[in-house]
Amino acid sequence: MDSTKIILQHIDQAGLLALKDIKEGDSVLNELVAVLQTPSERDSAIREEPVAGKMLLTDSNVVFVPAQPFVKGRDYLVITHLNIRFGSAKEVLKGKINYSMKPQQKLLTR
């Protein structure tokens, strides 16, 4: 993460190909990845709210470009449903499946 973008890497190739088939302007990408500014110990007056921006697809990545540069010292929460799987055959057979898909979350500080 820098002040200009967040790059999401190591995306399953099949999933990336499916995303590339989505028509330009479709909101699916925005539903798969969310970026929120969040309060922190350094700045608790900030409200948690979505960061405006756009998603771009490259050959191997999804890139979030904010409408305004990220603010130095501020925390941002990235929530993504990319690369989430339901469960392996082994987990299904052992009954260790969680019936809801939990997004991956990562807290980033600029």
Rank of each mutant, 00 (worst) to 15 (best):
K20L: 02
S44F: 08
S60M: 12
A34L: 06
S27M: 04
G15W: 00
K72P: 09
Y76I: 03
R110K: 05
Y76F: 10
K106L: 07
K90H: 03
F70H: 09
V33I: 14
S40V: 07
V71W: 05
A67M: 12
S44E: 10
K5T: 01
H10D: 14
L57E: 09
E41G: 14
L93H: 04
S100Y: 04
R110S: 06
T4N: 12
L108W: 05
L93K: 12
G95W: 02
R47I: 10
G15V: 00
F86K: 01
G25Y: 03
F86W: 05
T58Q: 12
T109H: 07
L19K: 03
A18P: 01
V71F: 07
N61W: 05
V65H: 09
M55H: 15
V92E: 09
I46G: 07
V51W: 14
A14Y: 03
E24Y: 12
A52M: 15
T109E: 06
L107V: 13
L19H: 04
N61V: 04
E48C: 04
D21N: 08
D43W: 03
G15K: 02
I11M: 09
F70E: 09
I22K: 12
A45C: 05
L36Y: 15
E31F: 13
Q9S: 15
S40Y: 05
L107F: 01
L57F: 11
E24R: 13
Q9E: 13
N83F: 06
S88W: 00
